[in-house]
Simulated assay, not measured.
Amino acid sequence: MAMRVLVGGGSGFVGRELTRLLQAKGHEVTVISRQPGPGRITWDELETRGLPLCEGAVNLAGESLMNPLRWWNESYKMDLFSSRIDTTKTLAQAIAASPNPPHSWVLVSGLACYKPSLTAQYTEDSEWTPFDLFSKLVKEWEASALLPDSVAKITKQVVIRSGIVLGRGGAMKQMMLPFLLGLGGTLGSGSQPFPWIHVSDLAGIIAHSLEHRVDTPSPSPPQVLNGVAPALNTNYEFTKELGRILRRPTVFPVPGFVLNVLMGSERAAILTEGQKVIPKRTLESGFQYKYTDLTSALKEIVGN
């Protein structure tokens, strides 16, 4: 059945892929953006006019964590928080105030809630408490999406915690450049887990969440799905496979201290540390992945 879907941050890398997928399925997409245009509304319009009639709502908005043009400082950190929390809160409040709330409300957050470890494995059922800057961000981010009980009786709430998104664009361009120059190598030790997902599969999980209602107690708490591929890979495995497919050497590792200097230690930890994350509930939901292993995902991305 065709739906009208409202997508915050729909003009970004994942948003464009999601829009293409939803439209291919026959759904109508309206993007919330800072810039007005055909098929768009602005965040100001959402606040002043309220939620347009829709059956599904998604928020993907947020300042890029790996923006190479921004120095790691307090201003950048504030923007990371406000761009995610404020937009999510605005959309959640619009849903709560609507006389006809959508049947599905999906927030895409991140894996930073799970503490980096070389041995621990996390599923959606894993308990966690904030332990650093980014886990605090996830806590506040997801909390800002919560709907009042009166609305949660009607609207299914879903949180998708995304891994590193691979695709023809986004952060992948930055990852590939050193390899194309013959300077590719592991980041830090290379032994850290590398939880990833192909952008097509992340868009697919979002669409699956919008289209399939789940029988849960009313009002239902948010359904959490891990947006990662089923494979468990390390940074070393990712590096070697990307180098093999590009036919480029991978002999120039980047020491952790260099990343700390260039990116700031808190931000660099996203690359030099990682978590083993299993998409247990995502698989149980019936979602079918297109790219379950690095080889197939990377071959699609680089065109081999």
Rank of each mutant, 00 (worst) to 15 (best):
A2W: 01
M3S: 11
R4H: 11
V5F: 02
G8M: 06
S11W: 04
S11L: 06
G15M: 06
G15Y: 05
R16T: 12
L21E: 08
L21T: 03
A24W: 03
G26E: 10
H27Y: 10
H27T: 04
H27Q: 08
V29E: 03
G37M: 01
I41H: 00
L46E: 08
L46W: 04
E47D: 13
E47R: 15
R49I: 00
R49W: 00
G50D: 07
G50T: 12
L51S: 05
L51N: 03
P52W: 08
P52G: 09
A57E: 04
L60Q: 04
G62M: 07
G62Y: 08
S64F: 00
L65P: 01
N67R: 11
L69K: 13
W71M: 14
W72D: 15
K77G: 07
D86R: 06
T87W: 03
K89I: 00
K89G: 02
A92N: 05
L107V: 07
V108H: 01
V108S: 01
K115P: 01
S117Y: 05
L118W: 08
T119M: 03
A120Y: 13
Y122S: 04
Y122H: 03
Y122W: 06
T123F: 06
F131G: 09
F131I: 13
L133Q: 05
L137T: 11
V138C: 14
S144P: 02
A145D: 09
L146T: 10
D149Q: 15
S150A: 15
S150C: 12
S150F: 13
A152L: 09
I164H: 02
I164G: 00
G169C: 08
G170M: 09
A171F: 14
M172C: 08
M176K: 13
P178I: 14
F179S: 06
L180M: 14
L181H: 07
G182K: 10
G184M: 10
G184A: 12
T186Q: 14
F194W: 10
V199T: 07
D201S: 01
I205A: 00
L210D: 03
E211C: 11
T216I: 02
T216W: 02
P221A: 14
P222R: 08
P222W: 05
P222E: 07
Q223M: 10
V224E: 04
V228A: 05
A229M: 05
A231L: 05
A231H: 04
L232P: 00
T234E: 12
T234L: 09
N235T: 00
T239F: 06
K240Y: 10
L242F: 09
L242D: 02
R244N: 14
P249R: 13
P249G: 12
F257V: 15
V258M: 13
N260L: 02
N260C: 11
V261Q: 10
L262R: 10
M263K: 06
M263D: 11
M263V: 11
E266F: 03
I270Q: 06
T272G: 02
Q275N: 04
K280H: 12
L283F: 04
S285C: 04
Y289K: 01
T295N: 12
L298W: 08
K299T: 12
E300S: 13
G303D: 13
